[in-house]
Amino acid sequence: MRPGWLDRIWPLLPVLAALAFTSVLLLLFKASPVVAFSAMLEGAFGSSERILNVIAFWIPLLLCAAGLLITFQAGLWNIGIEGQIILGSIGATWVALSLELAAPLQITLEILAAMAGGALWAGIAGWLKTRGGVHEIFGGLALNNLAIILTNYLISGPWQPPEGGSFRGTVPFGEHALLPLFDGSRFSPLALILAGTAFSIVMIALRNSTWGLKLKALGRNSRSAFLLGVSSNREAVLAMMFCGALAGLGGAVRVLSWFDSLRQSISGGIGYLALLVVMLAAYRVLWVPFVAFFFSAVLNGAIVLQLRTQLHSSLGDILTGVMVLFVLLLGDPIRLRGLRRAKDDG
């Protein structure tokens, strides 16, 4: 038997292993891990502006992860969440470019359009799965790529800025169309309130609502759930659309506060990152905000690292990815113990 203290620090092992792995990579490129990690740390928390950046990046990530908790509960792999963020951005941009209203009304409409856009894209993936028998991973993936292509088309076509054909983005939106920002940063308190509300709703839905229970049954055994009276197709599509709406809201936050216009690669990989967040949190609701915050810090740190050392910013993605991988491989001492027992037997 393993002594108790080892069990207690066990969850740290994947984190340490991931840090060790990235250190080796840094050494390969003749960069000092100490310098690099402290640059990242400073990049994330070095100034109040940077901390606000981390929070601003955290908000859409949290929204997406909250939505994914719902789809995972229903046993669905919503890989299409990237595309849902993008469609949210497109929805918000559409309202921002085509209407001129008073700020509160304008922003409300933008957000609603964004949520509708995300829900639509998710709904298509759900419909392909339930009606067409196309696994949501493949449907979602194709829709992600189609969403990227659609963005490129829009910003190089109909929504191209007047000054010319760059592939970069639309014109910046007017002040009234953007979310009110905190002290010149990219952080919008309104977005934080929205994300907090969304997360609470998800938490309640999962714990105490009939819908959450239905999704749980659906995720474990869709056939039995159907026979017990759950309209499995409808609930699956609804779960997808719910997640899509939150992802769309995240997309709105991206265009209306992080940026000020629709850009290429607007989602910034937040959708995939959110999938990693939920996996690292091992589908435990309360862990999700913390893990998401941590990931946000890592990625923001990596951007500063790139500016400092010219090292590719994908180091941040590597660090998060490796961490989740090590959690899958090492995170559960019980499984590993089972492994050892199997070896003793053989």
Binding site: I79, Y272, L275, I318
Partner: peptide, 8 residues
């Protein structure tokens, strides 16, 4: 696992 490795 497959998905994490895809990203990685």
């Amino acid at each position: 696992t497959g998905f994490v490795l895809t990203l990685l």
